[in-house]
Design a protein around this nucleic acid. Sequence first.
RNA 1: GCGCCUCUAGCUCAACGGCAGAGCAACGGACUCUUAAUCCGCAGGUUGUCGGUUCGAAUCCGACGGGGCGCACCA
Length: 511
Amino acid sequence: MSETWSPPYRFGRTATAAEVHERWGELAAGEESGEEVAVAGRVMLSRPQGKLAFAELRDWSGAVQLFALDKTTKDFAAFTRLNLGDWVGARGEVVRTRRGELSVRVAEWVLLAEARRSFGDKWRGVSDVDTRYRQREVDLWANPESRRVLQLRSRMVQRLRERLWALGFVEVETPVLHGVASGAHARPFVTRHHALDADFNLRIALELHLKRLVIGGFDKVFEIGRVFRNEGLSTRHNPEFTLLELYEAYADYRDLMVLVEELVSGLAVDLLGTTSLSYQGRDLDLAPPWRRATMTDLVEEATGLRVDVHTPLDELRRHAADAGIEVDATWGPGKVLLELYEKTTEATLWGPVFVLDYPAEVSPLARRHREDPALVERFEAIVAGRELANAFSELTDPDDQRARFEEQARERAAGDEEAMAVDTEFLRALEHGLPPTAGLGIGVDRLAMLLADAANIREVIAFPTLRPLPSAVAGAGGAGGAAGAGGAAGGVDGDEAAEDPADEDVEGAEG
RNA sequence: GCGCCUCUAGCUCAACGGCAGAGCAACGGACUCUUAAUCCGCAGGUUGUCGGUUCGAAUCCGACGGGGCGCACCA
């Protein structure tokens, strides 16, 4: 580029690539529309050909061809030298070339930004997963599938909100920094507030604050928010993930089953046009009604064992041992039963299916079952072998809640770091009276995986959690290849640290 | 945390104990309807790092680092 070039401050775009196709799609080969547009995007393919040049201009909406001619295009020579990835704004008449490609015949154009780094092989994209996740901006241009998945997630969350608003739910925001991280079984991340001289935990659930809002009169309330769990990573777990929780006063868990099946199947229709989809090569139909079955019945179907929360503990332990489960001595029958279910049955459930009636022992925030106090009125929705939603009739009795928290505290004292913490503010709030209420949590990332047919949760998270690079101070930009960056930080002289020209740019910019 | 796999040019990949290569990108040039354009030319590397075995290592071995998958963990 010329040394005098500096990027313009704005570009007056009049049409997206998709709009050009919509409006002039009927143009015949060789026909000229007589109308001008201004389009903008990245040049992703370039085919200079002597006194003609063709380029594919890609924007968020799609792509349209630019057609430049030496005779009529300003700065034609520079146009033929554009690099793949350069941002360009172009103005000209919409035409269809003789060979049939709808194009903007460029009268004038402007370079909006240079691409000094490559976006990978123009045919094969970028497949190195480390590069794809660490440099998502590269991945999004190199791999259309990545863009499709993240676009789908965005539309899914939009429609989720719209559907809940339409049902009369009020969206709220509750704090991320919690004095006590409670509401789920998980280890928290701890951080520190200096001015208050106090430790905070990043929230592991939204539950307790939302129920306090119900106590405060928000009788249909929801939040879509990030929660943080200090646990391992896998294809289905990211340490920070997005949770939808909603609470509806005067309703019970059976009402929420209807809500879940309508919500999830409705989103499938919104985004895919059908409830009948394929996940990882296997058919899955989300059309309501979904099967409802108790945990006991499902375990029996999967294993042939007829067990429930009243089965003698010795017998449950024996079955667990047979299934290869290491049983902790402190576990009661409910915990053993849950383990048995999770290890032998859950993954075999393709679903969708509502698994009903969990042991009270493992559900400290759920209300006891109206027919059996050893159980709670709780369900999980299992789809494609995974938990997609978890819901219950909420525990409203402050005395029972206190007793359940104290039981959790005993487990914590016995070494269970994930046992639920006692939240005294929540207990006090409950004493003001929580009406009969049903509550639901849906893993938004997992729902996106399902609808996008993604095998890995990282595909539906724009910037998934990765080990931080050690080169934070010297390298900054670090785009020169993640594999090399780690080694360079180690045993090199100070002189070599400045070798990458990008580093100098960073220093210059930061002063 | 444990096990297995993996790391070669900006990107995608060869070479698998005997001179480190190709395609794309980039750079220089030709070309008036291209569609992953084509053609000619040029350049690009401490084969993740360190150590070992060997006459000789990208290749075999070890350690370390990054990444992946599985297990564990995860209501």
